[in-house]
Design a protein around this nucleic acid. Structure first.
Length: 270
DNA sequence: CTCTTAACCTGGACGC
DNA sequence: TGCGTCCAGGTTAAGA
């Protein structure tokens, strides 16, 4: 479900409720997520004040002086802030109960998400080796061009590689490649510097705009306040196989690339 | 290194 | 109504 815009939307939604508050209790209903929830969280987190809710790539971090809780939403995870004593439903795997009784609740049918712990001053192994944030100054077309020299994998797989740049998932990769006129199956090493500049600009523009719209709701993504995201209506190619390209009117194609369904216009993208 | 593939897990949509 | 099949926004681990 969540790519960078959806995770950032979630961060903004929960931050106002969490920052400055203490965690009273950690309730774990199912420990076996992508990785088991480590017992250290139950020992360290209660009593701690959440100083900041931050984001790195598609991970959310609840920063305290004792360490940081590291949250990932996987494919189907979502977070809500709920009133005290709201009954838990199916797939509600953990709650972080705050002082005052409100709870941050994690729901995730497929259990690809995780809740891990990062000690103060340490970088969790999952965060080591991640590429730059796409909306930071460390990311631009020249960087992509330089890094891609000699790479034979498809440019779409290259763009979705989180060690290259973080946050770009299957929806926004198709969208950014369409916006910059690059065929998703083209070898990454055979895209020109000028076109990588356009691609990087498209990634930044699309992600920023999607954040403004509260992310993309395709099936079940909801913001922490329960509202859907409104970027779906802005999608140019994703999920539109067989429909008219919004630029040339020809049919949008789809094919599987790197195990993921990919949408593009063969007339507009080369 | 780089690249590809299988695997993790559940639910919804669809065809029969 | 029920059952089988396919698909889904992510990521790692293992193997070539």
């Amino acid at each position: 479900m969540p790519e960078l815009p959806e995770v950032e939307t979630t961060r903004r939604g929960i931050a106002a409720h969490l920052e400055g508050r203490r965690v009273r209790q950690v309730i774990v209903r199912r420990r076996d997520l992508r990785w088991p929830i480590p017992p250290v969280i139950g020992r360290k987190l209660p009593g701690q004040r959440i100083e900041r809710v931050s984001r790195r790539a598609k991970y959310l971090l609840l920063d305290t002086t004792a360490g940081s809780a590291l949250l990932h939403l996987g494919m189907s995870g979502s977070l809500r802030v709920l009133a005290p004593a709201t009954p838990a439903g199916k797939h509600d795997h953990y709650d972080l109960v705050l002082e005052g009784g409100h709870a941050l609740r994690f729901n995730d049918p497929r259990r690809f998400g995780c809740l891990l712990w990062q000690a103060p001053g340490q970088i969790h192994p999952l965060l080591a080796g991640l590429g730059p944030e796409p909306l930071s100054a460390d990311f631009d077309g020249d960087y992509l061009w330089y890094l891609s020299r000699g790479r034979r994998a498809a440019v779409k797989a290259f763009l979705m590689d989180q060690s290259v740049v973080v946050g770009v998932g299957n929806i926004y990769a198709s969208e950014a490649l369409f916006a910059s006129g690059i065929h998703p199956a083209r070898a990454a090493g055979r895209v020109s510097r000028e076109r990588y500049r356009r691609l990087a600009a498209a990634v930044q523009e699309i992600l920023a705009h999607a954040i403004e719209r509260g992310g993309t709701t395709l099936r079940d993504f909801l913001r922490p306040d329960g509202a859907p995201g409104y970027f779906e209506q802005e999608l140019r190619v994703y999920g539109r196989a067989g429909q008219a390209c919004r630029r040339c009117g020809g049919p949008v194609h789809s094919r599987v690339l790197g195990q993921r369904n990919t949408f593009f216009c063969p007339h507009c993208q080369h």
